[in-house]
Design a protein around this nucleic acid. Sequence first.
DNA 1: AGGCGGTACTG
DNA 2: CAGTAC
DNA 3: GCCT
Length: 290
Amino acid sequence: MAVHNRDIAEAFRRMADVLDVEGENPFRVRAYRQAAATLESLPRDVGDMVAAGEDLTRLPGVGEDLANKIREIVTTGHFRALEEELSHLPPGLADLVRIPGLGPKRVRALYQLLGIESIEDLKKAAEAGEVANLPGFGARTEARILEEIARLGATERRLRLIDAEHIANPLTSWLEACPGVGRVLVAGSFRRRKETVGDLDILVTAADGADVTRRFSKHPDVTEVLSAGPTRATVRVGGGFQVDLRVVDENAYGSAALYFTGSKAHNIELRKLAIRHGWKLNEYGLFAGE
DNA sequence: AGGCGGTACTG
DNA sequence: CAGTAC
DNA sequence: GCCT
């Protein structure tokens, strides 16, 4: 059975999760995730490239090492480095870092302090109220963990663009009518008109951000407030769809619109370009370096 | 060999 | 301040 | 881990 890009990407992601929990160098972890993303967006089957003897290191984020690992997976169907790493950990532990709010440090704390080895274990512990007592955790974190676990079963959370639009439009009108709000722009992948949208990134200009995020958090469609501060709020609306609201000053509108429209890869290239010119680019503007 | 994005919110 | 997310 |  042929190995496809998707399978290799999944293996690399799994490797990243395991290394993450093991406390490996975060940049090494990121390299696996980056390569996984490259493979998934690749229009060609990497197996064909291997068969044709093509140079895999030409792919962005794929160097000598990962090219060898891709070849290994394609030709043998095995990924020995992953199997090796997995033997160091309970098999279900690495899954925990996929729960939003849980990074490698918290997962290790759960494992060491409560012996939690899987999402199943975590669910039981959280239901028993044991998680809230851990250092760095609290009642709110515990509640959120349970919600995230419940969401995990639900089928893919991405929405088709048209469905995202039906959520975005009323929110946009509502924000435009909000006192103190100037411009309103739905940025992110929605603005890039991607086929599906994972969340909504709404950019707003206002002088008093805290007031806007506070009002927004009380919008009738908001079912859950994940965070809310003076410049940003993250909420979920009916159906569990995530909406990020960012508030910037009017004079940062242009750079914020650029920044929050992305894509992430595009932003990274732009930042590099700025650095090469001795400048610094962020969501607030383009500035002279240092 | 040395850098790897920069900023905001929670606990 | 550490951890996490974006 | 990759990239410059």
